[in-house]
Design a binder for these strands. Structure first.
Lengths: 191, 191, 191, 191
DNA sequence: TATGAATGAGGATTCATTCAT
DNA sequence: GATGAATGAATCCTCATTCAT
């Protein structure tokens, strides 16, 4: 009913600046980076930072949310490609790989979130990603490539345990070790 | 003649108390737990704590070292069993499982170590574990159970990414997902 | 247009309060006085104190600098008087006396500075004082009152060895003992 | 009446070791050196150190006392030489110089004593030094070399303000500046 | 609304001193 | 008597958060 609070052009701009700076700083210096330093990196005063995010926890949660949103976008794009005919297993693997690479950049963000007990604020985004990944899995299972037991939670489990802070070679090897567990004939007892 | 410098009885006891308390507290409250709190949990004064470990980093390193030593012991016992005729793959998997279960207790300790840049002091222990694991792998490869590409580093990679802070069900599922990558017929292209 | 960044009024006031309190506290209780106590004496929180002076060393250095500045002012005023016709030797002696009296208040500050290895930040002030004193000496030498060998360093040497922590009578006696060394016919062998 | 507590050979030896070590350590690292470190330098345990000196203050006082005793010895030797015919003023000056040189070594000891509010324990020694110096002064006054106003306290005043922590050149210059104040024709008005 | 100064609890660490062995 | 481990108050400093301008 009330008007949607007109311009706020700079407020929006500030929010973005802060979010970016926070991501960079946490990535670069770990979760113990100070709020003052984040503010400085964003060329804002601490007060402004606190106006946008009442708590450090809130800020970190927002950074994580942004990251999750990117993952969700990627997941949906991947699903679209599969719908258009791409092989599901290959796409899923590539998706996993991409996410891990991205995480390697955002390194400590997860740690920060965990350390602060930050709760993901926006469940919508997660559901979006979840739906897309579920579709990918189902497609792969229909192809007969992905093991029937595999669920979305398995993918999350792998995400959350990926060696994002290790060198690229380790990350690649890890993906290679982990992929068989998703495929049809990967069961040990299958031999 | 050979009494080893009389009165170290309580010092030894204290060292143990501190190490245990540190493990518990870090596990329970993360790496940012205060030294005072660890001291209190060990029923010691901070000074005592600092007499045994000159730095928080040193303390955490010691906790990690203790944990690593236990893993090394387990690895050697496992190797012994295999030498005595047990099937290598099954033993290795069980070993992995056991280590992860134990880690679940020590939860944040690794994180603390990493956050503080703690260096493992005693490389001997690591080598001990490494040798035992290498022997296990070789035995499994001789059995034709373990994939020829698998190395000790792979095992470490899995260790370090295990979801130690997740519920038991997740840990079990993770192990199931990851095992195929170690076995002979786990190659995707094998189908 | 040219307002100099509005609201520094209280910051300035606080800086002054801190500097004063620090001087008093160090004077009264020596260099080992705690930062918390200085803060309390200044009616400020420790944080404020650290915002103004990032280190105890910095704070002490600032206190010393303030003191040096006052000395420099006095030196210049004295030179001005001499330029206007006053007798140089008498003025120099009086100046020495005044500085020592002032020092008696600032007592342990020098010790604190030394103990903390505080470096004087503002060499300008020292040069200002040095120039003024040099002029005084030269004038006195032109008068034939001050011994030709006397240099600015001699004055500094006397400053730094003045018994600032002794009762007034001692300080006066010390000045009397030391003055002959500066005058023309003070050479022992001159007799 | 009771026997004088027989041997204690090692106790005596320990006391000496501690005193020496304390002197060295305080000289080298200032008054804030730890008791543990002094104990280590003396190759004793802290407990032993505390058996001999119940308090850090006591220890420092003892170190100072030892130093004062050496000065007293020198003073008496000097008086003896004057009694045997040496010129009093020259001897007094040389004595002053020697004491300052020695002090330069013991540097921070005085500071330590002051910082801890250490009271000189053995007034006998001081009286011994005082008597000798008084005799020297009187002899010089009888010679007509030393100004009639000069007292023992003046000498103490100079002692206590000597630039013991400055380079040798400064110490020499200081002595030159200060000597005229002690001699007969040092009065300004004498010209 | 943005700014940045102020707050003050909390953290790691030190060190004189005590006390069990 | 000697030893050295234990104690714990005290110190310097940091940092999330509040609030006056």
């Amino acid at each position: 009913m009330t008007q949607a609070k007109a311009p706020r052009a700079d407020a929006v701009r500030n929010r973005k600046k802060i979010l970016d700076a926070a991501g960079e700083q946490i990535t670069a210096h770990g979760p113990d980076i100070g709020m003052d330093q984040i503010a400085a990196a964003a060329s804002v005063a601490v007060g402004t930072l606190y106006r946008h995010f009442p708590t450090k926890t809130d800020l970190v949660a927002a950074v994580v949310a942004e990251y999750v949103a990117r993952v969700a976008d990627d997941a949906e794009a991947t699903r679209a490609r599969v719908k258009a005919g791409a092989r599901a297993l290959a796409e899923l693997t590539a998706f996993l790989s991409r996410v891990i690479e991205a995480s390697a950049t955002d390194r400590a963000v997860k740690a920060a979130a965990h350390a602060l007990g930050a709760e993901p604020g926006d469940h919508t985004v997660e559901e979006r990603a979840g739906a897309a990944v579920a579709a990918l899995i189902r497609a792969g299972q229909d192809d007969g490539d992905i093991h029937p037991d595999v669920t979305v939670n398995d993918i999350y489990l792998l995400f959350s345990t990926a060696p994002t802070d290790r060198p690229a070679a380790d990350r690649a090897r890890w993906l290679a070790l982990v992929t068989p567990g998703l495929t049809t004939n990967a069961r040990v007892t299958g031999g």
